[in-house]
Simulated scan of single mutants.
Amino acid sequence: MAGVSTQRVADTVDASTQLFCRVGEFLRDNHLSPDPLHYAFAYRVLTDTQGPLARAVAHLTDGGVSLSRRDIENLGGEIGALAAPTPTEAMALAKSDGLVAQTLLQVEGFADMMQAMRTDTAGFSRDLAASANEIRRSHETVAVDEVVRITTRMLDRVNVAETRLEAATHEAAELRTKLEEARANARRDPLTDLPNRRAVEEAYAARSKAGDHVCLAVCDIDHFKTVNDRFGHSIGDRVLKAIGEALRQGCEGHMVARYGGEEFAILFVGVTREAALATLENAREAVAAKRYRLRESDEPLGAVTFSAGLTIAKPEEVFGTVFARADRLLYTAKDAGRNLSKAG
């Protein structure tokens, strides 16, 4: 009996571990942050694989489509307030934070240096005043010698302080350059070299605050999971870079960002929805017309397409609201057959 109980415990632990891994894969495949709300939704899907929720999810993700925020909400799930940064973004932010800490330490060092110089100057003034009084009283050569000694000592201290100040100024210039570079890296996608999610959200906030006319497009590569499954993630990365570059060229003058996974966001500023849609359609048609081949074997990869949703931002709308609306239009295009753009 003891052996049977031990086996049951082992089976339970093994099943729990497998479920945990499957939940992690589900979150990764759908680009969801590992917060409790998303975990609970994944748990509901994976513990009842024949239930209505699991069937609905299977239908929505057919062909490698990732779940959108709106999909999860429509299926009764909840959305976390903020998406967790990607590992690359987290590393860039950590580097930036480290440089900020160095800068703060240097500022404190400047403060200490200036305080020391003020103390030395005050001491020099007191000593010089005392020596001047002594000269007036005695007219002795020894008092003059004392003034010379004090002055020489003070000049030495000033020279040392100037050397330290010059070195600290040079260090500050280097830190400023590194800090600017780190801040830029924290807002850039390392694979495509496009702005990332943080950058486009900040740009939208700035444009919205300025009262600019803004349109937002959300683009998603069609059947991207199939590319990864057939050819591997390295080929998938090349496809992402190629599509990112095609969007950048096709939408020149507008901000093209990799929002996450196979999703891109385009910020159109100062143009009508019709003009933005025309630009987006030209880019989509140019991408669909290309035929890709594998560099190593010259094997045809075939056509790669994307679907898109485009919407106008209303005054004072937050980014999440505008993105959700564009995202719904994107999945309307997916449902209509893919390789389409929908505007609303």
Rank of each mutant, 00 (worst) to 15 (best):
Asp11Tyr: 06
Arg69Tyr: 03
Arg8Asn: 10
Gly98Phe: 11
Leu19Pro: 10
Asp11Trp: 08
Thr49Lys: 11
Leu82Gln: 08
Asp35Lys: 02
Pro36Ala: 07
Cys21Lys: 11
His31Asn: 13
Glu89Phe: 01
Ser5Leu: 15
Ala90Cys: 06
Ala81Cys: 05
Glu78Ser: 13
Leu53Gln: 07
Asp29Cys: 06
Asp35His: 10
Leu46Arg: 04
Ala2Leu: 14
Val23Ile: 15
Leu82Arg: 06
Ala90Gln: 14
Gln50Ala: 15
Thr17Leu: 15
Val65Asp: 14
Val13Trp: 07
Leu32Gln: 09
Ala15Lys: 13
Ile79Asn: 02
Cys21Leu: 12
Thr49Asn: 08
Val9His: 13
Leu75Phe: 05
Leu60Thr: 00
Val23Asp: 02
Gly24Val: 05
Val57Asn: 09
Gly3Ala: 12
Ser66Cys: 13
Thr12Val: 11
Gly3Glu: 12
Asp11Cys: 07
Asn74Val: 03
Asp48Arg: 15
Arg55Asn: 09
Phe41Tyr: 03
Thr86Asp: 01
Asp62Ala: 14
Leu99Arg: 04
Ala90Arg: 15
Ala81His: 05
Asp14Ala: 15
Arg8Cys: 05
Met91Pro: 00
Ala15Trp: 03
Ala94Ile: 06
Val57Phe: 09
Phe26Asp: 04
Pro87Ala: 01
Val57Pro: 07
Leu37Cys: 04
Ser68Glu: 02
Leu93Lys: 08
Ser33Ala: 14
Leu37Asn: 00
Val45Met: 09
Thr49Trp: 01
Phe20Gln: 13
Val57Asp: 08
His59Ser: 13
Thr47Arg: 08
His38Tyr: 07
Gln18Pro: 00
Ala56Gln: 15
Thr88Gly: 02
Val65Phe: 06
Leu27Arg: 05
Glu89Gln: 14
Thr61Asp: 04
Gly51Ile: 08
Pro52Glu: 12
Ser5Ala: 13
Pro34Cys: 01
Val65Ala: 14
Thr61Gly: 10
Leu46Glu: 03
Thr61Glu: 04
Val45Ser: 09
Phe20Cys: 06
Gly76His: 09
Asp35Gln: 13
